[in-house]
Amino acid sequence: MTRHQFAKLTVAMTLILLAAGGLVTSTDSGLSVPDWPLSYGTMFPPMVGGIRYEHTHRLIAALVGLMVGTLAVWTWRADARRWVRWLAGGAFAAVLTQAVLGGLTVLWVLPAPISIAHACLGQLILSGLACVALVTSPAWARVGGWGAGAPLIRRRGLQAMAALFIQLVLGAVIRHTGRFVWAHAAWAVVAIVSLLRLAASLRHAPELPARWRIRASFLAWLVVAQGAIGVVVWRTGAQWAWLSAGHVLIGAVLLAAVCVTAVAAHHATHQAQIS
């Protein structure tokens, strides 16, 4: 297995972890296991009721922690680029911080600021790991040929990242306090517009490789789906746990996709300037 393949596997596992975490919140199972780091004093409590969600989340988190740790050590020893080493090392440090935040949410009975930070950091970790997967890929060396559209894509990518991050925080506030639903709904317009603008700039960059234009279409459809799911979750009072968790997961995928696009566009712009 190559490091890039392992990084992609880690990203996939982190997505599953985020889905599991979303289900914990959506089913109100976060406090079904009152102790931490063990669960009812053991690593394998009976998997009944809410414990199924909470403990599964913990087990997947432990696995992801090991994977990110392995990826960090591997990158630190195998990658000559200093910034990539720090990116992978930073991802591991963030995972450790995330574990502590998760523990504190349990031990301090879901304090809203900690729970919100836990929800947001999880998605940032996914984005960071997706970037590690990008910069360790063989395609990274070929990103340079994006042509004149790269700076515009970079700018719109950064705008979309900022819009999505604010939307992520607002979403986490709703899920952990039940407040500011209107702000999340209103800001969704900004987030959707910024994402569609990014997708449009990707679609209309003539020198961009075909796979990036396909990704742009995927991004646009995903944004539309996310908006529709958000409306359904809102109007039904988040009564379907799977749908709410899906909304969280798609939000995480969008943020990671935009982050990867912005980093690639930055690299392409930089490469163009050098050449």
């Binding site: 297995m1 190559t2 490091r3 890039h4 392992f6 090991l66 994977m67 392995t70 050590v73 591997w74 195998a78 360790t136 063989p138």
Partner: peptide
């Protein structure tokens, strides 16, 4: 890209 199985085993 060089394959480095020792890290997979470490994981």
């Amino acid at each position: 890209m060089r394959r480095e199985p020792q890290y997979t085993w470490m994981f």
